[in-house]
């Protein structure tokens, strides 16, 4: 009986410990911390959906256009951080910093995890979720230093 209690407690502890590390879906499961991106492009559309919003950005480079799908936080976290449907309308030129997905094939589109976005007026806003295990790059103002 005592043994069982110890076993159950340690399983529960391990579970919560791992969920702190893995909260929502872990960054490293899908994105490459060694592949930072810094793209400038026009917003094509924004999917304001749970559990993650997606910003589609068209990047022109030497006459070639690439479409990036950038994953953000939930619609709720975006609005709390100051990204609204009005501030990120299609056509807005934005700068996005983030990390590319592990499979780096851009077929049909490139996929990235967005960290922060810079608007035409110079405003820089965190667009990700806190505590995902993303590199501590200073993009998240709530991050413990």
């Amino acid at each position: 009986m005592k043994n069982l209690i110890i076993r159950v407690t340690s399983i529960i502890f391990l579970y919560f410990y791992s969920s702190i590390v893995l909260s929502h879906h872990a960054f490293t499961a899908e994105f490459d911390a060694n592949a930072p991106i810094n793209i400038t492009g026009k917003v094509l559309k924004v999917e304001w959906i749970n559990p993650h919003a997606w910003v589609h950005v068209e990047v022109e480079d030497q006459g070639k256009s690439t479409i990036w799908m950038v994953e953000g936080g939930t619609p709720n976290t975006l609005i709390r951080n100051g990204i609204t449907k009005d501030s990120i309308k299609p056509g807005t030129v934005i700068v996005v910093r983030g990390y590319q997905s592990k499979g780096k094939l851009c077929l049909p589109r490139c996929i990235a995890n967005g960290r922060d976005v810079t608007f035409p007026d110079g405003r820089k806003v965190f667009m990700g979720s806190s505590g995902t295990g993303a590199p501590r790059d200073g993009a998240d103002p709530r991050e413990r230093r």
């Binding site: 959906i49 619609p75 709720n76 609005i79």
Partner: peptide, 13 residues
């Protein structure tokens, strides 16, 4: 509505 909701989806989750 649920997909784009600010509060309902996280509450349900």
């Amino acid at each position: 509505g649920l997909r784009e909701s600010l509060y309902m989806y996280p509450w349900i989750e």
